[in-house]
């Protein structure tokens, strides 16, 4: 786009580019609203990231505030609550990988085994329904179900077990996160795996039957290898999301008693920004720390899975 054009061939080439661009004017016009939005709500805030390296003074603005180097990042590791939030985030994410991720696959396997097309459809509608509700709604329903007067405690009472305060019990809270996480999302997660199972070549099953393989053996030797690529892709997504340990769920279920085991980075950022005297610089630094680790994890996971199976999420 410089003015110093010196040779003819370049002029011709340039003209043709300008010409095709002119011919595509409606295409650019159609992209314009999207890119205005991206500029204002995605890229402009990225410039705000420099706050992580500044001591924010509202009256000086983002640009005018003085630099403070890596101070905020050093402080993250000197703040016990922040360190605990990092540890909780990783622990809960790993827990989800172990206790939640496989459930979608298992549910899909069971749904494929189940005979009866109509009943299956009804069941699937039931399983996927909670996915479309917010965690505020689901949290309220779970709270009601697990509370002191709730159904679970009443049933336990009939068995002679004394009341358990499920949501205010540090020992149980993470387990409850995984269980309720499954309750809400496993049906939805199963859909992708079911589609993947449906795409497996039926002749493989016929061959396995001829060889005398039992249904369980068929699942192990035909179905699971068949959906391995899908499992890998979903795993990448999950690992790339490691630093997001489920803000919506935790925010709507936790309380002061279980905070030490469930305060993750996102809840921590919310609490220090909106419930206390905010230090925008520090909050931004914690957020940036989180995004950068997430970004690195996504790239690492992609490379790893690529090496293992040849599947790739993005180039």
């Amino acid at each position: 786009m410089t003015n110093g054009i010196t040779n003819d061939r370049r002029i011709i080439h340039k003209k043709s580019v300008w010409l095709t661009m002119w011919q595509s004017k409606y295409i650019y016009l159609m992209l314009l609203p999207l890119f205005v939005w991206l500029a204002v709500f995605c890229y402009a805030p990225m410039y705000g990231i420099i706050l992580a390296f500044k001591t924010f003074k509202a009256r000086l603005g983002i640009l005018g505030s003085p630099w403070c180097g890596m101070d905020h990042f050093v402080r993250i590791f000197q703040t016990p609550d922040a360190v605990r939030a990092i540890r909780n985030t990783v622990t809960i994410s790993l827990g989800r990988l172990i206790f939640e991720f496989p459930m979608g696959i298992i549910l899909a396997l069971m749904l494929t085994e189940m005979p009866g097309v109509k009943v299956k459809k009804v069941y699937q509608t039931i399983y996927t329904f909670p996915h479309f509700l917010s965690w505020i709604i689901v949290g309220s329903i779970i709270n009601n179900f697990l509370s002191g007067n709730g159904a679970v405690n009443i049933w336990l009472g009939k068995l002679g077990v004394s009341k358990v305060n499920f949501l205010a019990n540090s020992g149980l809270f993470r387990a409850i996160l995984y269980i309720t996480g499954n309750w809400k999302e496993m049906g939805w997660a199963a859909i992708i795996f079911m589609a993947s199972i449906a795409g497996i070549d039926p002749s493989l099953y016929e061959a396995a039957t001829v060889d005398g393989a039992s249904r369980l053996k068929q699942i192990w030797h035909v179905t699971l290898p068949g959906i391995l690529p899908t499992i890998c892709v979903m795993l990448i997504l999950q690992i790339g999301n490691m630093m997001n340990a489920g803000f919506d769920q935790i925010f709507n279920l936790y309380n002061d008693v279980v905070k030490p085991v469930s305060n993750i980075l996102d809840t921590y950022i919310y609490n220090i920004t909106f419930l206390a005297a905010p230090n925008y610089g520090f909050s931004t630094a914690v957020g940036l720390f989180k995004s950068v680790i997430n970004f690195i994890l996504l790239i690492l996971a992609n490379g790893l899975v690529n090496r293992l199976s040849g599947q790739k999420l993005f180039q």
Partner: peptide, 25 residues
């Protein structure tokens, strides 16, 4: 310019300004 523009869009899926910069915006 399709590739470049597409890349600019996709990048926002993987990296963002975070809560506070967006809130300040």
């Amino acid at each position: 310019g399709k590739k470049v523009l597409f890349g600019i869009m996709v990048f926002t899926m993987f990296f963002g300004g975070g809560l506070i910069p967006i809130y300040l915006q």
